[in-house]
Design a binder for these strands. Structure first.
Length: 217
DNA sequence: GCGACAG
DNA sequence: ATCTTGTCGC
């Protein structure tokens, strides 16, 4: 179910090699019916102490139906492009404590919108084989600002390909950056993001996970 | 040398 | 990510 957890990298070169090995396992396809969505977020404390929080929401009511929190240590430094190696171990531990298996992971970061097309959402999706999407707060690539109204979007380009979308979840507010993680399509990922963000810029799933992690003593 | 750089 | 005052809006 969860692969490669016992061979976490010690160097950046090992980390890149793992990304390139797992990258072909990403599948882009229509997701099955989504009734619950998990929001994942990590809060940072002192030095390398981190708190991984996961909340599972009913996509229709946006109510929290399950949650888990795990305190841990960052086993990898923050390196742009290798973000998953810092947060994924604790997030996977938190996911393992859930009693409800979510239909999709909504990750705080990128999926295919990544220099090697294997961001956090792809990594978590492949390791768990759960559908996953990435909803980031900053762009990894170039884009034209979408129209000001909620729901409008524009393609996010990296090199010469479309790796995601800049999606306006609230009128007149900076867009979020949506990309496929695993077993999802870009269209479906944007639909889900809009359903999860009826009131604020970020999906309710990441907001509740963020609050939960921040609340931990 | 200068700017970029998920969280 | 986190460090931080006041301000605007619901």
């Amino acid at each position: 179910m969860i692969r490669d957890l016992h061979e976490w990298p010690k160097t950046e070169a090992e980390a890149v090699a793992i990304q390139e090995r797992l990258r072909p396992l990403v599948r882009v396809e229509d997701p099955p019916q989504v009734r619950t969505a998990a929001g994942l977020d990590v809060a940072y404390r002192d030095e390398d102490e981190i708190v991984a929080a996961v909340t599972v929401l009913d996509v229709t009511t946006l109510s929290v139906v399950d949650s888990a929190v795990v305190r841990g240590k960052a086993e990898f430094p923050y390196v742009p492009g290798l973000f998953a190696f810092r947060e994924a171990p604790s997030l996977l531990a938190a996911l393992a404590e859930l009693s409800v298996r979510p239909d999709v992971l909504v990750c705080d970061g990128q999926g295919l919108a990544h220099p090697r097309r294997f961001g956090l959402a792809c990594h978590l999706g492949v390791l768990t084989d759960l559908p996953a999407i990435g909803v980031g707060k900053t762009a990894m690539g170039r884009y034209e600002p979408p129209a000001e109204q909620r729901g409008s979007w524009s393609p996010l380009h990296q090199d010469d390909e479309v790796v995601g979308r800049a999606l306006r979840t609230q009128p007149g507010v900076k867009p979020v950056f949506v990309s496929v993680g695993h077993r999802y399509t870009l269209d479906a990922a944007c639909d889900l993001t809009l359903r999860l963000a009826p009131k604020y810029r970020l999906p309710e799933s990441t907001r509740t996970a963020d609050h939960l992690g921040r609340m931990q003593p």
